[in-house]
Simulated scan of single mutants.
Amino acid sequence: MNVYLVEDVLVDSGTPKARGRIIRQLRGQPLSAHVVTHAHPDHFGSSHAVCEEFGIPLWAGQKDVTAIETATPATAPGRIPQLLSRMKMPDPHPVARGLCEGDEVAGFTVLEVPGHSPGHIALWRERDGVLLCGDVFFGLFGATAPPDILTWDRDLNRESMRRLAALRPRLVLFGHGRPARDPDRLARLLR
């Protein structure tokens, strides 16, 4: 799982077990806020600890606010996702700002890209083509769709994938996997 520091904003926080490492790495860094791309435990897992430690507000996509505040993420259809949802969840945390399409965060524009979760957001900086895509795409083995078993609405996520690919980003920062610098990489996946 990837965690990013964009200017003075922390983007995502990994699992609950990452809290110590993340807090150590952030000590001495100026922080103004923490943004979560989507309400899955591997992205807001350490959010409560980080926000408490540094006294910073938590921001998330408007349609994922309740899931984070209650630590009850929306699940994909099927029996196995329902079983996974019974696992121990991260500590909930109040969301100070529900982000919507067009909001600005650390020089990036918020894009609503639902599907992997109802309120999934991406951060797009048009001037240099940088995209933080969360889990709309996985970057573990090239660029792929996220696993269906972890995706709330597969068809809606596919629409979000098309939307982000059409941007032709010059640098894609995934929630999982290495960065990609090929503007056509995402589009090839959708052919």
Rank of each mutant, 00 (worst) to 15 (best):
Q82G: 15
A76I: 06
F174I: 00
G55I: 09
G28W: 04
G45E: 02
P114G: 03
G129V: 00
V65R: 12
S13V: 11
L171M: 14
E159A: 06
G119I: 09
R191M: 11
H120P: 01
D103E: 12
T37Y: 03
P30D: 05
T144N: 10
L131F: 04
A143W: 06
L111R: 09
L132K: 03
L5G: 08
S47E: 05
D153W: 07
G177C: 09
S160N: 07
D103S: 06
V6M: 09
N157R: 06
R86A: 12
L31G: 05
L10F: 13
A143K: 02
R21W: 12
V9R: 14
T151I: 13
R178Y: 12
R79I: 13
P169Y: 14
E53Y: 07
L171P: 00
D103G: 05
E126W: 02
S32R: 15
M89F: 10
L84I: 14
Q29W: 07
D182F: 13
V136E: 01
F138V: 11
V113K: 03
D8K: 07
D64S: 09
V6C: 04
T144Q: 15
A49R: 07
L156P: 00
A145H: 10
P147M: 00
N2A: 04
F137D: 01
I22A: 02
M87Q: 14
F141E: 15
A74P: 13
S117F: 02
P41S: 15
L164C: 02
G14H: 05
R178D: 11
T70P: 11
L31H: 08
P92D: 13
I149A: 10
T72W: 07
I22H: 01
T15A: 14
F174G: 02
I80A: 09
L123M: 09
G139R: 12
D64E: 05
D42V: 07
R24Q: 14
R86W: 08
G175K: 00
A122D: 01
Q29C: 10
A33E: 05
L26A: 08
P73A: 15
V110H: 01
G119T: 11
R178C: 06
T109Y: 05
S117C: 10
A76F: 05
D135F: 10
R168T: 10
I56P: 08
A18I: 11
L123G: 03
G175V: 11
T15D: 07
P118A: 08
A187T: 05
V36W: 10
V3Y: 00
N157H: 09
R154A: 13
G98R: 08
R170M: 00
G61Q: 04
R154K: 15
P94L: 15
E69M: 07
R170E: 00
D155R: 15
P81K: 09
D42W: 13
G45V: 04
D155V: 08
K88Q: 12
L26K: 01
